[in-house]
Design a protein around this nucleic acid. Structure first.
Lengths: 126, 126
DNA sequence: CCTACTGTATTGGTTTACTAATACAATAGG
DNA sequence: CCTATTGTATTAGTAAACCAATACAGTAGG
């Protein structure tokens, strides 16, 4: 689970760490209330600086995935998979807006993106 | 058209410049064969360094939007709006893939993204 | 209490992206 | 030709992101 990390990847270390945990929470592998490894434990296991793990945990806390309690530890929040629908849709719309502007920048129309979206998702979109 | 640029924006100057030209080409405002302002002209008009305009033009050239000819100028390529459909769809699909992985990172499902996409595009998607 | 554990805060070094400055090379036109 | 205009190349400075190091502060449990 928190086994390894790639220092040579273009994606930052803290981002790799945060991503894995985020996915684990979304998938239900980490249930709400459960405590994450301590900053120092995870840091020594991954061979990175504790501050890097802090940065990852902080990013997760900013998104509401975890809660950091000084002296106690870092815990998975109630939200996770059951996050409020309005919040999810708002975030999704923001992502989509960014995609569309990026597509426009490259001279792609909304139709191009829509076609790619259908092709990529297949039947899931229905 | 090439009127102003915002140095305080988080998006780089060369990117702002390239984006506008890209959109102008995609929209047909700049027809193939037409010459763009010279590096120095555009730079002095926008109050930026010529090298910054070069970087913008270079990015456009890398995408096949324009062609830079030393001694002559920079010209809009034939592609532009008529770019090959396969190329457009491939690029669009790559963008969409990136979006979906980013969405997964944030704990959003493909369904969330699909809903946001429909909401954002409205009737255009049909 | 007090000790061993938790997260917090500040600081610094390294790298990378961005912008600028300056000198170079090719083309067009008189 | 030769001069003015075009893009090219190299170098440098500035800012931001990233990671590490170290000292600080709160909490739990014996």
């Amino acid at each position: 689970m928190f086994s390894e990390v790639d220092p040579r990847s273009p994606t930052p270390l803290y981002d790799q760490i945060a991503s894995r945990i985020r996915i684990a929470i979304a998938a239900g592998d980490l249930v709400p209330g459960r405590s994450l490894p301590s900053v120092r434990h995870l840091a020594s296991r991954l061979r990175v600086n504790p501050a890097t793990v802090v940065q990852a945990y902080r990013a997760l806390a900013a998104d509401g995935f975890v809660e950091m309690r000084q002296g106690s530890g870092t815990f998975v929040c109630e939200v996770g998979t059951g996050r409020k629908e309005s919040e999810r849709s708002a975030q999704a719309r923001q992502l989509v807006r960014g995609l569309l502007s990026e597509a426009a920048r490259r001279g792609l129309s909304a139709g191009d993106v829509a076609a790619a979206f259908r092709a990529e998702l297949g039947s899931e979109v229905e």
